[in-house]
Simulated scan of single mutants.
Amino acid sequence: MNEFSRIAIIGGGSWATAIAKILRENEVELNWYMRNVDTSSQFKKLGHNPRYLTDVDFDIDKIRFYNDINQIVEDSDLIIFAIPSAFLKNALSKLTVKLNDKFIVSAIKGIVPDENMIIGDFFHNIYQVPTDNIGVISGPCHAEEVAMERLSYLTISCQDADKANFLAEKLECPYIMTTTSDDIYGTEYAAVLKNVFAIAAGICHGLRYGDNFQSVLISNAIQEIKRFVDTVHPIDRDIKSSAYLGDLLVTCYSQFSRNRTFGTMIGKGYSVKTAQLEMHMIAEGYYAVKCIKEINEKYKVHMPITTAVYNILYDRISPAIEITLLTEELR
Rank of each mutant, 00 (worst) to 15 (best):
T17F: 02
I22P: 09
E27N: 15
N31C: 03
Y33S: 08
T39K: 00
S40I: 01
S41M: 04
S41W: 00
K44T: 01
H48F: 12
P50G: 01
L53C: 08
L53F: 01
K62F: 00
F65M: 12
Y66P: 04
Q71V: 02
E74H: 12
D75V: 06
D77H: 10
F81C: 04
F81L: 03
A82C: 11
P84K: 08
A86I: 15
F87M: 05
F87K: 13
F87L: 09
V105K: 04
A107I: 08
K109M: 03
I111L: 01
V112N: 06
E115P: 01
N116E: 04
M117A: 15
D121S: 12
F122Y: 14
N125Q: 15
Q128V: 08
P130E: 08
T131Y: 13
D132H: 13
D132E: 15
P140L: 00
V146G: 09
V146F: 10
A147G: 12
L154C: 11
T155F: 05
S157G: 12
S157E: 02
C158L: 09
A168H: 02
Y175N: 10
M177C: 09
Y185L: 13
T187L: 14
E188N: 10
A190V: 11
V196Y: 05
F197M: 09
A198H: 01
I199T: 04
G202N: 08
L207S: 09
R208D: 14
S215I: 07
L217I: 03
I218G: 07
N220C: 12
N220K: 11
A221K: 06
E224L: 00
R227N: 11
V229T: 11
D230P: 08
P234K: 13
D236S: 14
D236L: 13
I239Q: 09
Y244Q: 07
L245A: 11
Y253L: 12
R258Y: 07
I266V: 12
K268P: 02
Y270F: 14
Y270Q: 06
V272W: 02
T274K: 15
L277N: 15
L277S: 14
E278N: 14
M279H: 01
I282R: 02
E284T: 05
E284N: 10
C291E: 09
C291G: 10
K300W: 02
R316I: 06
T324M: 14
L326K: 07
